[in-house]
Each structure stands twice: as C-alpha cells, then as structure tokens.
Amino acid sequence: MDDKIINVENISKIFNPFPLRKKERGPGLWVANLVRLRRIKENEIVALQEVNLFVNRGEIFAIIGPNGAGKTTLIKILSGLLYPTKGNGTVSGLDIIKDHEKLKSIVSFVSASFWMGLEWQFTAYENILQYAIMLGVPQDTAKKRIKEYGEFFHIDYFDKKVPALSAGMRQIISVIRGLVVDRPILYLDEPFVSLDPEKRMALSEVVKTLANKGKTILISSHEFTDLDVFHPRSVMLYKGKTIGYGFAEELLPEKGIIPYSLRLSEFLPDLESALFESGIIACKVPKELIVLDRVFNVRLLVRSERVNDLINEILKRKIKILDIKKESISLKDAYLYRVNNEVLN
C-alpha cells in the first residue's frame, strides 16, 4: 500500500482580507480595490503553516483539529480551489497549482457547506442527477448509482424538494451527490455533520468499502468516534500548524500514556485537579463524563507508572470504583491531549 497519491510539501496559506469601511461602495471602492491601498499586514490570517503530509493510494486519512485549525483550507488547496501562499504538492502526480484544472477529473469533494448549493426549486433526486450530468457522468450510470446509494442510505425522500428536507437530509443528499461522481480520490469535509447515528454508520461503511476498492479518502471531522472506526493515519492541525502526524498512538508525543475507562460512584472537580497536578493523568479536562444511573463514566489518560496512584487517589476520597478498563489510544485521546497542551502553552 506504500503508493503515495497525495503529497504535501511545506504548504502555507496566508489570507489577507481586504478591510472594507462601513457601507463603502461606488468609485472609491473600485479604486481602492484596484490598487489595494489598504492592504494591512496586521489583518493577515495565517490559515496554514508549513504543513507536510502524504497519503497512500487506498488509504483513509484524517485531518483533525479544532475550529479554525485550517482543515478546510488544506482540502481546498488539495482540490485546486485555493492556491497555497508557499509550498506545493501533488495529487496523483499532478501539481496542485499548475495542474489544478486536471485535478477536477480525479477528485470528488463533499463539504458540510455544500448543501447550500442545492437548488431549492428541485427535488433531492434532481439535484443529484443534475450535478452528476454536469460532472460528465452518463445519465444512465448516474441514475443507477443514485438508486444504489438511495437504497443503501434508506432515502425515501428523493422526490421531496429541498426546502422540505431537514438539515441532516440535505447533508446526506450532498454526500450522495459527491459519491455518485465516483472519482479515485474523495475529499470529505465534515461529512458527519447533522447526520443521525444510523446514517453515520452507513456513511462509515461506504467509506470503508470505497477504500477497500482502492479509492483514497481524505476526511476532516470533529466526530472522533466516527473517525476511530477507520483507525486512520492523521494530521492534527492547530491554528494552521501541524501538532501531530501519524496513527492515534503516534499522535501522543509522550510515551507511556494509557487511556482508562472508569465507572465511579462520584467524580468531583477537585479529584480531577488533584490527578492532573500530581501528574497522574496527562490531560487536565476529562471530556467524556457521562452520568448514567448515578454512575460516572470517565475516560482518563493515565501515565502508566501512576495507575496505582490513580486508584489510591480515588479510594482516598471514598469513591467507589465500579469498573476500570484499559483502552487503546483513540484519536480523541490524542486530540484532547494535544489541544489541551497547546491551549495550556
């Protein structure tokens, strides 16, 4: 599988938005735009900073990071919608700047915001078919694929017009619209947004099937539970910088951290602070805190040599440990650890 299909080398992207004065229009704006009189360095937004990565053919690769990390910018650069300010890359051997027109025939792009582009006067079915024809898919093939995906995702609202669809329905229609095109490389930008659990599982299934067929999938998402199903290699971005790269366990820079799932009779903030300050746990905030029937389910990133200390600290507070289970490192663990540390630093 070591066949690099996407290569990114030192890509940076700096946006320099044009500062508009309030209600500005007319000849003054034309001249100002033409000569860019007010191009101000302070307004620059560094969306990506020297990002490097590669993706193998047939691989599912994840781009993760908090809001504003640069995930969508990176995907847009790789699809030719944006030029990088610095650096370059290739997709299937094509230069992402020089050959961006050729990228169109090998890449399919699904974005969470693409439902905005659905034609409101059309039915869900017509929207998908129109787009497929526009992208050069023969009509019969497109109809066949729409039917297949419709059955797979249990879509019974193909005949409804877009305004009658819920946010999740519009999202799955946008996803099918991208899948019907059937290109060797698929970019999925936040594809799970607004989807119900059944549709999320179905989409994960489709992604796995496509990857098994040799398609390369680049996926950006906050839905770590969905991403962990693929156990993907990932790049973790934070404010445009790469803060982690590799499989989930490689994303943690500190060795010897083990996630533990605990069921406790109680979990108080002072326990959490004590565990963190004494170095027993590596991540300050336990993000997964679920209360079910007065039971606290907590997932903690514990330093392996301090597991006994963890148990002692809990018992010292007369908290009952109903269950304790060793887990493997997930993307969410790595994400919380890295982002937590970035925020603290």
Binding site: L81, K104, F114, G117, Y131, M134
Partner: peptide, 13 residues
C-alpha cells in the same frame, strides 16, 4: 452567493 461556485469549479466544466 448561492454557494454553487465550489461545485462548478470542481466540475470538469
């Protein structure tokens, strides 16, 4: 403004 520019630019049109 409709948000279809991305779709068209990603198409082989």
């Amino acid at each position: 403004w409709n948000g279809t520019m991305d779709l068209y630019l990603l198409s082989p049109l």
